[in-house]
Simulated scan of single mutants.
Amino acid sequence: MNEPSAMGMRRFGRINWLGMKTLARREMQRFLSIWMQTIMAPLVTAGLFLAIFSIAIGPGRGEVMGFSYLHFIAPGILTMTVIQNAFANTSSSLLVSKVQGNIVDTLMPPLSAGEIVAGYIAGGVGRGLFVALPIGLVMMPVLGITVQSPLLALLFITLGAALMAGLGLLAAIFANKFDQVAAISNFVITPLSFLSGTFYSVEAVPPVMAHLLHWNPIFYLIDGVRYGVLGISDRSPLLGLAILSTVTAIIIVWCWHWVRRGYRLKP
């Protein structure tokens, strides 16, 4: 007969796979239950972006790096939509728990800080990929785009979703009310998204702005996805992959540190 475990002892190995899987499933069920808002709305928004630029530029006009302007911006619009949804998923989930006072339901179970962070980020990445799939399946055939390196594009999209899910987690931990997260989204995330080469090439901007672009990790994300889809990029995809991986790792470690300390999470 097995002896009972001592109080406080982990009885499920070094990693609580079941608890982490349950948290990730909960985060995914959150956005799947309101799929009209979390999946269909981004698809409509991406379509509106393309329609507006198509009308503004006109058919057959505008060429960037050897591609039509609509083809050039399509990977950027897809990526921008993915990262905005990944950020929204983690930031809204954790902040709602804090505001409603039920964050204890996440902190009390036998989950380590790393397992909690992994569960939340898995939900954010899942929402990002669920958004990317329908946008890609609709946008690419309509525009007549053949994806050059699907696996590389998927790798960049996944890394970008993980990065923004981590930033969303940091924002929700730091914030105590929805206005604070909205301010971070409006004054940090949105400018970084729009000033990242989504709608233009580095060659088209002044040297000072081009220099600033290289300090924006989202620039390397969108540049990498564009390379995976169209086969063109402003910078080396390997450099972008290295920078993006490093920044994502730093953000995830930062999240782990704050959750482990209980920073702004524990009363």
Results as ranks from 00 to 15, higher is better:
T79D: 05
G160C: 09
N89H: 11
V188P: 02
I83D: 00
I243H: 06
Q37A: 14
P206K: 06
R226P: 14
L238Y: 08
V188C: 06
E63P: 02
E27N: 14
S233G: 15
A210L: 06
S68M: 07
M36G: 15
K266V: 14
W17Q: 06
G123E: 03
K21Y: 09
P217W: 05
P4H: 11
D234Y: 10
I57F: 06
P217N: 10
L23A: 10
F87A: 04
L143V: 12
G47I: 09
I173K: 00
T22I: 13
W258M: 13
G76R: 03
L195H: 03
A165I: 09
I34R: 11
L265V: 07
G128P: 04
R26F: 12
S97P: 03
F72T: 04
I184T: 11
E203H: 07
Q29W: 06
Q148D: 09
W17T: 09
G119C: 13
E63W: 04
S185M: 08
N186V: 07
N16G: 07
S93F: 13
T248W: 07
G224V: 09
M209S: 08
V202H: 00
R260K: 14
G144W: 12
L192N: 04
G101K: 10
N186Q: 10
P206M: 04
T45A: 15
M20S: 11
P59I: 07
L169M: 14
I121P: 00
V82Q: 01
S185N: 09
I135G: 00
T90N: 11
V202D: 05
P134N: 07
D234G: 15
Y120H: 12
S93L: 14
P141F: 05
N216R: 11
I189H: 00
L241K: 06
V117M: 03
P206F: 02
L213D: 02
L95E: 02
L221M: 14
I135P: 00
K21S: 13
S112C: 05
I34M: 12
K177C: 07
S97V: 04
G47S: 12
G76D: 11
V117G: 00
L239W: 11
M9W: 03
I57K: 07
F187Y: 06
I243C: 11
L32S: 02
V205R: 03
Q100A: 14
G47E: 06
W254D: 03
K266Q: 08
G19C: 10
T248N: 05
F174Y: 11
S245I: 09
I77D: 01
L23R: 03
L192T: 09
F31S: 00
F219D: 02
F199L: 15
V247A: 09
T79V: 15
W215D: 01
G197P: 12
T248Y: 10
A51S: 12
H71E: 13
I52D: 05
I252R: 01
G197T: 13
L221F: 12
I243N: 04
K98R: 14
I77A: 02
F156H: 03
P237K: 08
Q37V: 15
W215C: 06
S68C: 04
A74I: 12
T90V: 13
K266M: 10
R11V: 10
R260M: 10
G123T: 08
A183H: 03
R25K: 12
R127S: 02
M108G: 06
L154P: 00
W35P: 07
